[in-house]
């Protein structure tokens, strides 16, 4: 092995420079030039202040906003420096108890909603930062939001439809609603009547 030590050391240094500094530097330059908004985190500003990222979920608890999914990131959820899922297995008592409490809360918050609760409304996402909810989940919350904003259900449903993103290329993934964008649209469009 001895004769290979010198080339091994030189190769390690050379490749560290090439793939560890030159490559990411080059990609950073190109991305900042071509896709500046995405490369910096798809941040959203309102009145000149950054209030979040379109890709990173944030918590909403007030009745006049749509609520995101439960989150296991950090102690209080939606901690964007501590991304993780709950890692609770299917036979875990804690998972059952948590979902039971979430189901009860969901029905209490949305008394007019009948029928089975969309699974994403009670389950924590893998990242704990899921920015989106299913269309069914948004529909289930629409009546509550409309009532809290003293507006018609049709207005809210129109905004949901506007914030709904279909499957990528028509078949990839699932249709979904971005919670932050929908809530910002609510504030923008329905503030007058609030």
């Amino acid at each position: 092995m001895l004769p290979q030590l010198a080339p091994a050391l030189r190769m390690t240094v050379f490749m560290t420079v090439l793939t560890g500094l030159v490559y990411p530097g080059l990609v950073t330059g190109a991305c900042q030039l071509l896709f500046r908004r995405q490369a910096n985190g798809s941040l959203i500003a309102r009145n000149g202040e950054v209030i979040g990222s379109a890709l990173i979920g944030q918590n909403f608890t007030k009745p006049d906003y749509f609520h995101p999914r439960p989150s296991a990131a950090g102690n209080d959820g939606y901690d964007a420096t501590a991304s993780q899922g709950s890692n609770l297995g299917p036979t875990n008592q804690k998972l059952y108890d948590r979902m039971k409490a979430a189901a009860e809360q969901f029905r209490k918050e949305n008394p007019s909603f009948q029928g089975p609760i969309p699974a994403d409304a009670l389950t924590a996402s893998g990242s704990g930062l899921d920015p989106e909810i299913s269309v069914a989940n948004a529909d289930a919350q629409a009546a509550r939001v409309a009532q809290a904003r003293h507006t018609s259900l049709e207005d809210v449903e129109r905004l949901i439809a506007g914030a709904t993103r279909g499957r990528d290329l028509g078949f990839l993934g699932e249709p979904r609603v971005n919670v932050l964008e929908l809530n910002l649209a609510l504030d923008r469009e329905l503030n007058a009547r609030k």
């Binding site: 299917p90 189901a103 969309p118 994403d120 009670l122 996402s125 989106e132 069914a136 249709p175 979904r176």
Partner: peptide, 27 residues
């Protein structure tokens, strides 16, 4: 076990159903 809580476990046009714990909405 979790279906007993009244969850939509079947897929529909507006939600994925199934075991969504630990999964992302978009996927």
């Amino acid at each position: 076990t979790l279906d007993r809580l009244g969850i939509a476990s079947r897929a529909s046009a507006t939600q994925a159903g199934g075991n969504m714990e630990g999964k992302e909405t978009r996927f």
